[in-house]
């Protein structure tokens, strides 16, 4: 018995050691990014290269530059506007779709759901050419709000799929009672289905927020004006200036961009796990 215990303890220690090692490898790139953002631009090609800057060389000048000189606020607010609009609209339309598809037997259900699955299979970027043409026809090129319908359309399949799964699990009896009371579809949707499905909607919204917050290829294709750029394009733009890259600025801006995301992630961790696992375990 004793030896078994010993083996167990050894196993545990090994587990923790491996996990700790993994964690170090996971976080090194991020720590390096932060440490680079804290050193002066001139020290970037110092020899030997350092993982941490010298203590006395630590500086906030990159952050000062980003906050004062660049259009960071504008880019930040642009990203906030686009992301929040996307998640709000996506939550509204896809929860309604999920409610109808999950709770009622319409003839078109199969067809609609088939299309939803189909579009989940095709990588989004493959459609960039016809979507660009569409944006041109609708005059959505170089319009900040013009990003929103495209983002909403992108996240609808995944959102509907997830929320539908949740709606299906709402017991029929709860709704049955309302029907007998003569409630309308709208009432049942807003009073019963929505509140019950709110955890699913919340976790889907977090994913949608991330999608919209970090989207790069599409925004980079349709947005031109500096004042309409979202954060990813702004960062890429800082980098893209050839001949000398000011990594300090790039990474200071990156850190500032990541803060809201990491905060949301840590605060809403529970919803994250829920959203992720709902799809996978069900299959």
């Amino acid at each position: 018995m004793k030896s078994l215990n010993g083996a167990r303890i050894r196993g545990m220690i090994l587990r923790y050691l491996l996990l700790a090692l993994g964690t170090v490898i996971f976080t090194l790139p991020m720590i390096y990014m932060i440490s680079t953002s804290l050193r002066p631009n001139g020290a970037l090609y110092e020899y030997p290269p350092r993982f941490f800057p010298k203590w006395e060389a630590l500086t906030l000048e990159n952050y000062g530059y980003i906050l004062n000189q660049s259009k960071f606020y504008v880019n930040f607010l642009n990203s906030v506007f686009v992301s929040l609009s996307t998640i709000t609209l996506a939550a509204a339309v896809s929860s309604a779709m999920a409610f109808v598809l999950g709770k009622f037997k319409l003839k078109a259900n199969k067809l609609i759901f088939g299309f939803i699955i189909l579009t989940m299979i095709i990588p989004g970027t493959t459609m960039i050419v016809p979507q660009f043409e569409l944006a041109t026809k609708l005059n959505l090129v170089n319009q900040l709000w013009g990003l929103i319908p495209f983002y909403v359309a992108w996240v609808i399949p995944f959102s509907t799929f997830m929320i539908k799964g949740f709606m299906e699990n709402i017991p029929g009896e709860i709704m049955e009672a309302s029907w007998i009371d003569g409630a309308s579809v709208w009432t049942v949707y807003t009073r019963i289905a929505l509140p019950l499905a709110s955890p699913a909607i919340a976790s889907v919204s977090i994913f949608n927020f991330l999608t919209a917050w970090e989207e790069y290829p599409w925004a980079n294709t349709v947005i031109n004006d500096t004042s309409k750029r979202t954060l990813p394009i702004a960062i890429a733009g800082f980098f893209g200036q050839h001949q000398f890259t000011q990594w300090g600025y790039v990474f200071a801006m990156s850190v500032l961009t990541l803060i809201p995301v990491v905060l949301i992630f840590i605060l809403c961790q529970k919803f994250f796990v829920q959203g992720l696992t709902a799809g996978s375990v069900k299959g």
Binding site: V93, T119, P130, L134, V152, A153, W154, I156, V185
Partner: peptide, 19 residues
């Protein structure tokens, strides 16, 4: 209830695939 979502989806995702 279906229509708003379906319209956005059809216009910005399904139509581009056909196109």
């Amino acid at each position: 209830l279906l229509l708003p979502g379906l319209l956005v989806f059809a216009a910005f995702t399904v139509y581009p695939i056909i196109r």
